[in-house]
């Protein structure tokens, strides 16, 4: 007993468990999570390249092919006739973030990666804070991708006003948070997922195609009023429009409100879903990890 007592004394300074954490420690945690996500992203070169190639294929090939087919009249925020490539650029920026959000969420679903999620969740900091930090980190990574895309697109004559590059940043942060939170929510409710295809078919494609990313909504309305309404209620449409307007130094207030609202909604839902007592994680236990 005496050795045990002595030992307890020796490690005693490390156990001021009651004290809670200082603001500085919260910041250290956030920085650590963002730093790790960025490092991991930079190390996974294939992921970086495919994140860039995907929108560039749309821009170089799809947009070039459709340039003659789809004429885009002058609609806000544009002040002149624009080429189709210029029209779909904001949509492609949002697409990068959509993929990034889903990808980082999916990586949580994978068992191996679930392990990484577990190391995150055993941190003594509040769980909502850990999830928010993870979200901020994912958004930061998506910003890297979007600006790399914009840089390459510039050589393809996609040249928004210089101020737009700066003003689009807050819009991208918001849309990145919204799509990341959606991904996180999906990761907590999906029981099992064999691969990326499921989310691709049931989330990414429907969201992307029923939005204003590829065609202006007034054109959709001519074709199908029903689709038009679906597009209008699609939060992704509003992410695209928020980015589009910001890129041309304007604000679309409705989109701003929708994106903010959806971000809060998805985030709260994700935090509840990851809450150990209420959460869906425990229910998921029945399919695996019981051994």
């Amino acid at each position: 007993m005496s050795t045990a007592a002595a030992n307890t004394q020796r490690i005693a300074p490390a156990l001021d468990a009651q004290e809670g954490f200082s603001a500085g420690q919260y910041l250290i945690c956030l920085k650590g999570i963002v730093w790790r996500e960025s490092l991991r992203f930079l190390h996974q070169r294939e992921r970086f390249i495919s994140a860039l190639v995907r929108p560039l294929v749309w821009l170089f090939i799809f947009a070039a092919g459709f340039r003659q087919v789809l004429g885009v009249s002058i609609i806000p925020p544009y002040q002149t006739y624009i080429l189709y490539g210029e029209y779909i650029t904001p949509g492609l920026m949002a697409m990068i973030q959509l993929f990034n959000g889903m990808q980082s969420s999916l990586s949580m679903v994978y068992d191996r990666e679930m392990g990484n999620m577990r190391t995150l969740l055993v941190s003594p900091l509040p769980r909502w804070y850990l999830l928010c930090s993870k979200l901020v980190a994912g958004t930061a990574v998506s910003l890297l991708q979007v600006y790399a895309f914009l840089f390459i697109a510039w050589f393809w004559d996609i040249e928004p006003p210089p101020l737009g590059y700066l003003l689009v940043l807050p819009a991208l942060i918001l849309s990145g948070l919204m799509l990341g939170a959606l991904g996180m929510l999906i990761s907590s409710v999906i029981k099992q997922l064999e691969n990326f295809a499921g989310v691709m078919n049931f989330v990414i494609f429907p969201m992307f195609f029923t939005s204003s990313a590829l065609y202006p909504l007034w054109r959709v309305r001519e074709g199908s009023p029903l689709l038009y309404y679906i597009c209008q209620y699609n939060p992704f449409t509003h992410a695209v429009e928020l980015i589009r307007f910001a890129l041309y130094a304007q604000i679309d207030w409705i989109s701003l409100a929708v994106v903010c609202g959806c971000t809060a909604l998805f985030m709260i839902a994700a935090i509840l879903a990851y809450d150990p007592s209420r959460g869906l994680l425990a229910r998921r236990g029945e399919t695996g990890g019981v051994a």
Partner: peptide, 16 residues
Amino acid sequence: SGAALRILGVVFQSRT
């Protein structure tokens, strides 16, 4: 949970 997790070290079964 914060106070408890703070003095807990964990090694999970799967590689993390």
